Simulated assay, not measured.
Amino acid sequence: MKEKSPPTIYFNVAWMDEYRGITDSDIPLDGGSWTDKHEVCNFMPIDGKCYGYVQPPNSETINITRIGASEDADYIDSVTVVWSARARGGKTVVVGLYRNARVHRRRQKLPYSPHHQQSGFSLVDYFAECNEEDAFLLSHKRRTHFIPRGKNAMGQSLIWYGESETGAVESLKIAALLQEYITEKHQSNTDSLIMECGDTTAGSFDRDQQEIEEDVQNILTSDLSNSEKANLVRARLGQGKFRKQVMQVWRNSCAVTGCQIPAMLRASHIKPWRDCETTAERLSADNGLMLTANLDALFDRGLISFDAKGLMLISPEISDMDRERLGLQHARLTVAPSQWQERYLAYHRQVFGFSN
């Protein structure tokens, strides 16, 4: 059986560049008085979501029954929302899309609101919402898809339900466009993460860089969401949320020397990345030590470790002279490891042949 296409609804709003609040360089055009326009924040991420507003004909409700909701439903899910606006040339074009959106019948209120930068006007109303990663704002050069106007198409109303034959054809075009934008956005995210990988591993031994890049590629080709992929890639690189949490645990300083120069510090996994069994282990701050670059290199290769009390254990491969040069004699963690950190340290000691 052919899978049913998601319902599509068209919302016509004022023209803006970013839809992230009104600024001196970005004000709504061809939309009437801006003080009545809550749509100026339609693509402003708020706690991982975007909230969109359009002005309904009666100002209070949207007839979501016309796109498949039951008569008594308050909202409908899995909707493709097409945001359009009148371009400077007079044509109505697609300026953005929401995928897998929830569209409400009645006006909703944000728990708190972004504020207009010039007047402090509170922008709290919305009718549609989606996850941030499902919101696609088009650049000027991509705003080339025209929305049909007139009979059986977008009329004077700012909402078109696309129920006509014209609407059915348009929904197929929109589905193709959305897939194109999804692919481009995914490739852009992938490219930026790969670049981040290259930048972060620059200067590493070739073997280490190859292993990291292989791990990154495995993440990028997995079935995880884009946000999960980003978190894992950055954790693999000792960056992002993982680094921030490890920094907090070790009070923004090296766990051994107390050095507080951010450029010198690395968020190092205690239990090696490839040995972690779950995403939770890979992202856990308890599985991390904040170390200066030289100590991170030694720890990552198993040339040093730490016992249950935090005393540094040193491989016999490091000569007495190098121990002195590196300041390893009598070194220890600035804070004794917690019971959770010790579980990971015990694993590190076992893997690299230190006595427990």
Rank of each mutant, 00 (worst) to 15 (best):
E3V: 01
F11I: 00
W15A: 01
D17V: 06
G21M: 12
D24E: 06
D24W: 07
D24A: 09
S25P: 08
P28G: 09
G31W: 15
S33Y: 15
T35D: 02
T35M: 12
D36C: 06
K37P: 04
H38Y: 14
H38F: 15
V40A: 03
C50H: 14
C50W: 11
C50N: 08
C50Y: 08
G52I: 02
V54F: 11
P56E: 15
N58G: 02
I67C: 10
Y75S: 02
I76E: 02
V82M: 09
W83F: 14
R86E: 14
R88N: 09
G90Q: 06
K91M: 05
Y98F: 07
R102F: 04
H104Y: 11
Y112G: 01
Q117W: 10
S122D: 10
D125H: 15
N131K: 14
E133V: 00
D134W: 03
A135I: 12
F136K: 06
S139F: 00
K141N: 11
R142Y: 07
H145E: 07
H145N: 09
A153N: 05
G155H: 05
Q156R: 03
E163V: 04
E165M: 09
I174P: 01
A175M: 03
L178P: 14
Q179M: 13
E180H: 11
Y181W: 11
K185F: 12
H186P: 00
Q187R: 13
S188V: 03
T201R: 11
Q209E: 12
Q210L: 10
E211M: 05
E214T: 05
E214M: 04
Q217K: 14
N218P: 05
L220N: 07
S225G: 09
L232C: 11
G238R: 00
Q239R: 09
K241D: 05
Q245G: 04
Q245C: 05
M247S: 00
Q248H: 05
N252P: 00
S253W: 02
T257S: 12
P262H: 09
A267Q: 08
S268Y: 03
S268D: 02
I270W: 04
E281Y: 01
E281P: 02
L283Y: 08
S284V: 14
A285N: 00
M290V: 07
A293H: 02
A297D: 10
A297F: 04
L298C: 04
F299P: 03
D300K: 07
G302Y: 13
G302W: 13
S305P: 07
A308F: 12
S315H: 04
S315P: 04
P316C: 00
I318V: 11
S319L: 11
D320R: 14
R323K: 15
H330S: 10
A331M: 04
V335N: 08
A336R: 07
W340D: 09
W340C: 08
Y344M: 06
Y347I: 10
V351D: 06
F352L: 02
F352G: 01
G353F: 02
F354R: 08
F354K: 09
N356W: 12
